[in-house]
Design a protein around this nucleic acid. Sequence first.
DNA 1: TACGGTTGCCAACAAGTGTTGACCAACAAA
DNA 2: TTTGTTGGTCAACACTTGTTGGCAACCGTA
Lengths: 192, 192
Amino acid sequence: MNDSDSKPASRRSDATRTAILDAARERFAADGYERATIRAIARDANIDPSMVMRYYGNKEGLFAAAVAIDLQMPDLGAFPRHDVGRALVTHFLDMWEENEVLTALLRVGVTNQAGAERMQGIFRDQLLPTARHVCPDPEQVPTRAALCATQVLGLALTRYVLRLPPVVALVREEIVAWLAPTLQRYLTAPSP
Amino acid sequence: MNDSDSKPASRRSDATRTAILDAARERFAADGYERATIRAIARDANIDPSMVMRYYGNKEGLFAAAVAIDLQMPDLGAFPRHDVGRALVTHFLDMWEENEVLTALLRVGVTNQAGAERMQGIFRDQLLPTARHVCPDPEQVPTRAALCATQVLGLALTRYVLRLPPVVALVREEIVAWLAPTLQRYLTAPSP
DNA sequence: TACGGTTGCCAACAAGTGTTGACCAACAAA
DNA sequence: TTTGTTGGTCAACACTTGTTGGCAACCGTA
C-alpha cells in the first residue's frame, strides 16, 4: 500500500475487481440491498465470496464502491430559458436508461438508511447546484429543485421499479412532452 | 372453521390478532418486507413468533392481511372540472398522512415482487376508474392516470421514504399549490 | 367433575446470511 | 534456487431467518 492516491497502479486482479463490481451493480439494481447476497454476486462474477470481502471489506463497502453516481448534470444556463424543463427530462431519461446504477440506488435508498442518505447527498451536491443557475430567487432553489426531484424520481419509480404498465408503455417522446412543462414550471414559474 | 364468511364470530384471541396486524403494519412501513422480521413483529405485539404463523400461515399471509388498501377515492365528477387536480392532491395527502399502510406498501413494492403487483392492482382497480370520470378521451385514461401516479408516488417517495429535506420541509398548502396544477394538466389538458 | 378446543410459550429445525482464517498455486524479486 | 507477495479456493464460524411440533394453562360446556 505505497501508492495511496492518484495512481491506480494496475494490478493483476483488476479483472476480478471489476467483475465483482459489475455483478454487484446488476444484483443491487435487480434485488435491492438485502436480497442481493454476496454469495449471489460472487457466483455471477465466477469467484469465491471471500474475494468480495478481501477487496471491499464488507457488504456496505461493496455497495459504496459499486454505486458511484455522477449525474453529469448539464449547465442549464446554456439553454434558452424556456427550454430548461425539456433539457432536464431528456437528460434524466438518458442517464436512467443507459445506467442500471440509478435503479440500484433507488432500490437501495428505499430499504437502506445508508442508501437514503446517499440519495440525499446526490440531491444536495448535484441537483441543487444545477437548479441554482436557472432559479430566479436563490431562496427558492431548494424547494424548486425538490419539486423536480419528486416528479423525476416518481417517473423512475413507476417505470423502472414498480413497472406500472401504462408508465412502461410510454415512449420517450411522450414522457418528454408531458413532463417538460411540469419541470419548467417547477423551475421558472412564479411561486404560486 | 365452520363460519367461513360474513360473520367474524368474535374470538377470544381477537386482541392478539389485531395486535399482530398493528405491529406488522408498523414494521413493514418502517423496514420494508425483508427487514421486517416475524420475530420483531411478534416482539412488538408481545407474543410468541409462532402465534403469527398460527394465525396468518406464513409471512406472505401476514403481509396480505396487514396491508389492505382502500384509497377511498372521491368521485371526481362531483367537483368543478377545473378543481380536480386540487381535489386529488388534498385527498392523497389526507390518505398518506393518516395511514402508515401506504408507506408500508410503497416500501414493500420496491423490494418485493408481490408488493409491486399489489400496487399495480391498486392502480388498476382504484385509480383508473376514478380517472375515467374526468378524462375526455377514454383511450387516454390509462396514460393520464399513470402520469398522476408518477407525480403522487414521487412525492410520497421523496417525502415519506427518502425524506429529502426540502420535500419534508414543504407544508401542506405549498404541496397543494405546486402539485394541483400538474395533476390538473395531466388529467384534463389537451394531449401535447 | 371431566373434557375437547382454544390460546399461548418453549425449544428446536433447516436453510441461508455475512464474515473469517487456513491453505494452496502462481508469480516476481533476490 | 529461495523467498515473499499476490490471487484464489475451501471449509467453517456465529448468527439470523421462517417455520414446526410438543406441551402447559385456560376456557366453556356437559
